[in-house]
């Protein structure tokens, strides 16, 4: 469904990704494991079109999306739920969700999607008319995920969904992601909580220093010596 071949990317003169190659098949849950600063977020942002690669190719459903602007990539069905929630702080939760459905393929079914999302996140319903900035961190993360789902994406990408959340809230977030996965979504996820993520994933990539150094099934990675030593501190 999605494939990245030999992508170099970075910010300004700083190169962060160095020949990254990975792919995601329809219906799969794939995770990228790596230290802070290894380039995980940069990878997701490059797929989403927020960063343009200096070389390499990104294709989605057979179409080359390397040089497409971010908003057109969204229109094709790739949605990134960014690190740190990134809600629209002075808009209500409802407005935030409406913006989620801005995508051409989602605008018409906005109301049905919202009902569906409310079922998944019942707590949001009570908060619909509050400003997003007045929510707690956990609630904001729920809204961010819900907003991402409003786009009815074909590929959903999560960037550090548990970042800065209390453990109990992290559990709720993972429960929600679990439901989305169980419903058959295609997911690419980056998460500091390596164990939990690998447990939920089908496959994983290990990103070090801007390059993929290892890829395998999630199960194999969990028992890999390098992964255990570098990312689990064992």
């Amino acid at each position: 469904m999605l494939s990245i071949e030999g992508v170099d990317a970075g910010y300004g003169a700083t190169t962060i990704l160095n020949g990254v190659t990975l792919d995601v098949q329809a219906g799969e849950v794939v995770t990228i494991v790596g230290a802070n600063g290894a380039g995980k977020t940069t990878t997701l942002r490059t797929i989403a079109g927020l960063i343009k690669p200096t070389s390499g190719r990104v294709t989605f459903e057979g179409q080359d999306i390397t040089s497409l602007p971010a908003h057109e990539i969204v229109d094709l069905g790739i949605t990134l739920i960014p690190e740190g929630r990134q809600l629209f702080p002075d808009m209500t939760v409802r407005e935030n969700l409406m913006m989620g459905a801005y995508r051409r393929g989602a605008r018409a079914q906005q109301h049905e999607t919202m009902d569906h999302v409310m079922e998944l996140f019942p707590r949001i319903r009570e908060r619909l008319d509050q400003h997003a900035s007045s929510l707690s961190g956990g609630e904001q993360q729920m809204v961010a995920i819900a907003r991402g789902m409003m786009a009815r994406p074909k590929l959903l990408m999560f960037d550090e969904p548990s970042l800065g959340l209390a453990p109990i809230v992290v559990a709720q977030v993972f429960e929600a992601i679990g439901k989305i996965v169980a419903a058959g979504a295609t997911v690419l996820i980056v998460e500091q909580n390596v164990f939990t993520t690998l447990k939920a994933a089908d496959r994983g990539y290990v990103l070090e220093n801007g390059s993929i150094v290892l890829t395998d099934t999630a199960e194999a990675l969990l028992s890999d010596d390098h992964v255990r030593q570098a990312y689990l501190g064992i």
Partner: peptide, 12 residues
């Protein structure tokens, strides 16, 4: 519980 995750223990 707070940082390493329950799985950290399992993994050990």
């Amino acid at each position: 519980e707070a940082y390493l995750g329950k799985d950290f223990v399992h993994a050990q």
